[in-house]
């Protein structure tokens, strides 16, 4: 997509910057508490990719559905899931957004139409198609936004979902976060066709690309795609070109990529480039930026304190929430 000017509304720009900072600081804390053994299991950090969630998710309305993957802390946070309940979930506590049953990979919030939190690669796509089918059949104007990594395009579930959504003209926004690697497997080592938009087009689905390191490009691309979906002509595919700065999860020795490559991408980091732009173009001052960061850090500290103090669910209720308590 072409270069787009920063929208000349300091408040919406600040909101996007705030989202990105909240994700970054929350995840830095999560990594620290993982190191301390308070967070366990798999922890997939989104650091480096914040512009995508921060730019895209605010475009959706409350009525829309959001489906994400196991790398979804940022999506949940921007969608409005309170940081306390995300952190508590990572700590496995009963006050977490999945009551400690899910952990980092399985964040859910039904009240915000946030459908997780899926750790089966490609598993969320058919779900989004179904959500959109329901909206369609109910005559409701909801859109299902489905986030997934470029690794998922190799799964059969991707192709089946793309086809169904296009065939039935369902209101799905396929949001592909192309961070170039699926664990250790680079895109060109797993796909014969690395042009992901071409795959979408082969299903006769409009496709566009946004710079996933630039929150403004993400926002503009998402709005453009979303308005086409809302017109009712069927699904749209957006590829966000982005990069994860951290390891795939906490167990990854990163044998598959050069340090230099990571450093090069870090220079395009979404937070420092955008804040520099706001300073240059919208008069954001360094003091304002630091004050914002301090507020975010305080929020994170409070979330950690909340998560630490929160109780685990007692083992006595282990059998709850497997089937309906008042079922047949």
């Amino acid at each position: 997509m072409s270069e787009i000017a920063v929208p000349n509304r300091k408040s919406s720009s600040l909101a996007m910057l705030t989202h990105m900072l909240r994700i970054r600081r929350m995840e830095e804390a999560a990594a620290e508490w993982y190191g301390a053994g308070k967070i366990r299991g798999y922890l997939h950090l989104y650091i480096g990719e914040e512009a995508v969630a921060a730019g895209a998710i605010p475009c959706f309305g409350e009525q829309d559905d959001v489906v994400a993957t196991y790398r979804e802390h940022g999506h949940a946070l921007v969608r409005g899931v309170p940081m306390n309940s995300i952190m508590a979930e990572m700590f496995g506590k009963a006050s977490g957004c999945s009551h400690g049953r899910g952990g980092s990979m399985h964040l859910f919030d039904a009240s915000r139409r946030f459908y997780g939190g899926n750790a089966i690669v490609g598993g969320g796509l058919p779900l989004a198609v179904g959500l959109a089918l329901a909206a369609h059949m109910q005559g409701e104007a909801r859109v299902a936004a489905c986030f997934f990594g470029e690794g998922a395009v190799a799964e059969g579930a991707f192709h089946e979902s793309m086809n169904l959504a296009a065939l039935w003209k369902l209101p799905v926004l396929f949001c592909c976060e192309n961070n170039l690697y699926a664990m250790g497997t680079a895109l060109e080592r797993s796909e014969s066709q690395t042009d992901l938009c071409a795959k979408a087009e082969s299903y006769k689905m409009p496709a566009l690309r946004a710079d996933g390191m630039d929150v403004v490009s993400v926002r503009e691309g998402t709005l453009q795609a979303l308005s086409r979906v809302r017109e009712g002509a069927g699904p749209v595919f957006v590829e966000y070109r982005t990069y994860r700065f951290r390891a795939h999860s906490m167990f990854d020795p990163e044998l598959y990529r050069d340090r230099q490559e990571v450093e090069d991408w870090k220079r395009r980091g979404p937070i420092h480039t955008f804040s520099a732009r706001l300073k240059a173009e919208q008069g954001l001052t360094e003091q304002e930026f630091l004050a914002l960061d301090a507020r975010v850090m305080a929020e994170v500290a409070a979330a950690v304190a909340f998560a630490e103090a929160a109780p685990f669910e007692p083992v006595s209720t282990l059998a709850h929430n497997v089937v309906a308590e008042d079922g047949p």
Binding site: R40, G41, G92, K93, A94, S98, G100, R101, G102, G103, H106, F312, E313, V315, L318, A319, V322
Partner: peptide
């Protein structure tokens, strides 16, 4: 194992 999908939280996982 208890007839529950595996929970994340340590005390619950151990209980399963």
């Amino acid at each position: 194992s208890e007839e529950v999908p595996m929970p994340y939280a340590l005390p619950l996982e151990e209980a399963v």
